[in-house]
C-alpha cells in the first residue's frame, strides 16, 4: 500500500492537530478534516496513527472516513471540480455536464486525473439554484454553465499550479 504521509509529518500532525483537539468534545471530525486539508486525504497511515493516539479503533475511524464523501483515502487533485447534481441543476442538464467533464478529463466521476490536477468530486446542492446548473472549482463558483464553457473552465485552472 502506498504511503502518502511520512512519519515526521505524523509527529508534526500530533503536535499541531491531535494535541489541539484531543480534549475537545468530539475531536475526531476536526482531526480528520485537518488531515484532509493538509494532505488532501486521510490515508490508512494517518487513520492508524489517530487510532493509536486517540485510542479510537481503526474500524470506527474508517467508518467515519468512508461515510463522508469529503474524505478520501488517497490524495485528491490540486483542484476539486464539482458538478452540482442537486435537483435544480439536475433538471437543468447537469448530467450532460458530468459526461463532458468526464470525457475532457478522461476520468470517472469521484476519481482523480492521472496528472493529479483535478479530482472530479460528487457535489450536492450548493444553495444557488437560480444559477443552475453550477460547477464549483475549489471555492470558485460558476453559474449557468453550458457544455461549451467547460473546456475554458478546465483550461483556466490547469494553468494554475498544475504544470506537470
Amino acid at each position: 500500500m502506498s504511503i502518502y504521509v511520512l512519519e515526521e509529518q505524523l509527529n508534526e500532525f500530533k503536535i499541531e492537530v491531535i494535541n489541539k483537539y484531543r480534549d475537545t468534545k468530539s475531536p475526531l471530525m476536526q482531526i480528520l478534516q485537518e488531515s484532509q486539508k493538509r494532505y488532501g486525504c486521510v490515508p490508512v497511515e494517518v487513520q492508524e496513527f489517530i487510532s493509536k493516539e486517540m485510542n479510537i479503533t481503526t474500524a470506527k475511524i474508517n467508518g467515519v472516513v468512508s461515510f463522508y464523501s469529503m474524505f478520501s483515502l488517497i490524495p485528491s487533485g490540486r483542484h476539486i471540480l464539482g458538478v452540482c447534481t442537486g435537483t435544480a441543476c439536475y433538471v437543468k442538464g447537469a448530467s450532460r455536464l458530468v459526461e463532458r467533464v468526464e470525457a475532457l478529463l478522461d476520468t470517472e466521476y469521484g476519481s482523480t486525473t492521472e496528472d493529479g490536477c483535478f479530482t472530479l468530486a460528487h457535489t450536492r446542492c450548493v444553495g444557488d439554484c437560480a444559477q443552475a446548473p453550477v460547477i464549483m472549482v475549489n471555492d470558485e463558483f460558476n453559474g449557468k454553465v453550458t457544455s461549451d464553457d467547460i473546456p475554458k473552465i478546465i483550461a483556466r485552472h490547469r494553468g494554475k499550479n498544475c504544470k506537470k
Binding site: 487513520q47 479503533t57 481503526t58 474500524a59 470506527k60 474508517n62 467508518g63 468512508s66 461515510f67
Partner: peptide, 20 residues
C-alpha cells in the same frame, strides 16, 4: 469491547468489514 468490525461507506453501498 474490541470494535474490529465497522460499517464501511454509506447508503446502498454500505457493507460490514474490518477496517480499510
Amino acid at each position: 469491547g474490541v470494535e474490529a468490525l465497522g460499517f464501511n461507506k454509506r447508503g446502498h453501498d454500505t457493507f460490514i468489514s474490518f477496517a480499510f
